[in-house]
Design a binder for these strands. Sequence first.
DNA 1: ATTAGCACTCAAGTTAGTAGAGTGCTAATT
DNA 2: AATTAGCACTCTACTAACTTGAGTGCTAAT
Lengths: 349, 349
Amino acid sequence: MKLDNRKAKILEFIIDMYIKSGEPVSSKTISELFQNTISSATIRNEMARLYELGFLEQPHTSAGRVPSQLGYRLYVDQIMKKKSLSEEQTRQIESWFNIRDLDYSSLIKNSGKILSEITSCMTILSSMAFKSLIITKIEIIEVSNMALAVILVTSSGIIKSKVCKVDFDINFETLDYIYRFVNNTFAGKSVEKISKNYINSITTGLDNYQSFFSPIFYNIYEMCESLQTSDFYIDGQINLLLYKELKDVASDIIKIFSNKNTVIDIINDKFINLSDNCGAAVIKFGRELKRAELIDICLIISKYNISNIGTGNILIVGPGRLNYSVLVPWIEYFSKMLSVVLSESLEIK
Amino acid sequence: MKLDNRKAKILEFIIDMYIKSGEPVSSKTISELFQNTISSATIRNEMARLYELGFLEQPHTSAGRVPSQLGYRLYVDQIMKKKSLSEEQTRQIESWFNIRDLDYSSLIKNSGKILSEITSCMTILSSMAFKSLIITKIEIIEVSNMALAVILVTSSGIIKSKVCKVDFDINFETLDYIYRFVNNTFAGKSVEKISKNYINSITTGLDNYQSFFSPIFYNIYEMCESLQTSDFYIDGQINLLLYKELKDVASDIIKIFSNKNTVIDIINDKFINLSDNCGAAVIKFGRELKRAELIDICLIISKYNISNIGTGNILIVGPGRLNYSVLVPWIEYFSKMLSVVLSESLEIK
DNA sequence: ATTAGCACTCAAGTTAGTAGAGTGCTAATT
DNA sequence: AATTAGCACTCTACTAACTTGAGTGCTAAT
């Protein structure tokens, strides 16, 4: 599907114009962009060809042309030149990450907010799902006379803690006994192995001590579970209302992306084929997402990660006409920075 | 401002109808609700009186009547009868709280989602800002050879932990030394006292040990800070688009409530005068909120809390025409349940 | 105090007409 | 063979005039 230079140029102009205005682009406008070196009649002929090839659409007979999703696809894959970020812009992104007071989930939540402002799109950020973590040790400390804090320390330095009510006397001996038993049982194990079944199987072997240990074991299970599941933060929903072409479908789109499981389905679709290396944004258009309600949108997906500890997703949802040449570099740089900042604050080893 | 029975009844009918339909209510409709025992002409006379008194408004000369905010005020304060929840309904709310696997912030986040579904409004839930917490002790554990976990245990059993990178050799002696020093310094103090200034003042006195302790101190400060600040979770923004009377202002409203500081301002307005006892919803209408952009909305505020550990806010944002008699009991029961569940999972002593 | 009756008002829908932006095609030009 | 001027044609968007009907306000009778 190779276009001659002029056709490609015309397609590029049409897409650029349409991204800016949201209005169908006329042959006259394009002719002017060529400084009238090519007449509008010629442009019309070329546009007719591009229409036959499927790269353009026409809202009605006497209207200008609009890019088709195939047109966008060609544009982002072959025609568009990514604008590199100015120093000023990279500095701006970096300055957002200078607020170090944030804990992990606030950082993700805030990143979503900032990205939705930059892109004027809806954003969905998922927190990292950590993989192949090994439990290094479990600390048990006394919180009050009825409660223990259980602290799970993993191979990558990720820790997780939870308070656990107990109904026995806490003293040095019991604490020490619990500490030994819990560490003998769990230390060295992978968090993935700590399933509900596993917890049940070891609890039933305990006989008398069952009620004694079972709340602690259950808390450990919950912590392992939560390390492996990711939260989703959605923001910038109203941005979708900015685009007239989405005004009727915006609320359906928002509903779809508000459902965690649907989002997971979309991300995991084989077709999307996300590369694991963070920062390389993948662009998908409505049809490619195989859902009638998403036909009008564009989805930009990027990842952030820390080497082999885990990855999280960045989703940008907007109309087809996005300023890709500017947005993609922004998003890619943003994901890279997020990875760096998280590496610094989470990865210990 | 006492209305005679019939006027009150007419106002009630008008508000009920308008809540259901969103359309101006005509004298004929009201007459029918009285089974035509009162003619539409009489109703018109009464409506003219109610209009003079400020309880009704008229979109245009030949249209029916619409409640004014003063009308709503009278309705919710004096006329409306709260519908008590059926057993089925209380069971339903309770069943949502049965999912105990959730940690604190997920519980708040999910509560917002559920409430936005029940109410068809936008919801904002704030996490609890804990007050008057005393630091009981601070545990320090080794996470890797370059990192320590610092665990803050407070008087109410609330704990908070953070990983802290250090650049010295961790061994039993250093750990023990740090433990003693940190606990001598912080144990028994109120978290409110641990300000940036306070940290600076004690750090500067340390001379040689300054670089040694300062990352640990800084992490302690951050944890104290975050215990006292609350996060805000907003959900159900699209619900505002369901109401035709809000369609032009919905995105402004969403923007206003997306700003944490503005929300805090609104909640703290003396006029709102929230009672601390959880579960008693306060209803405020547009004018009463003193912001031009909020003129068309209604805000229902409720609190959840745990005796004297802290309180969090539940905000429901919708149009003036909400089904108050049903919604208010729901919201109040929901806040009560949230308080109970949180008490169970957080309050230890 | 209530109500029947009627003139009046206004929003919303319908129809018809107009302007203009843009196309598609043909024939002339390069 | 590619380009272009020229023109008829199409379709949207806008405006103006008209119609309909829901609903009111007021008056006079009950």
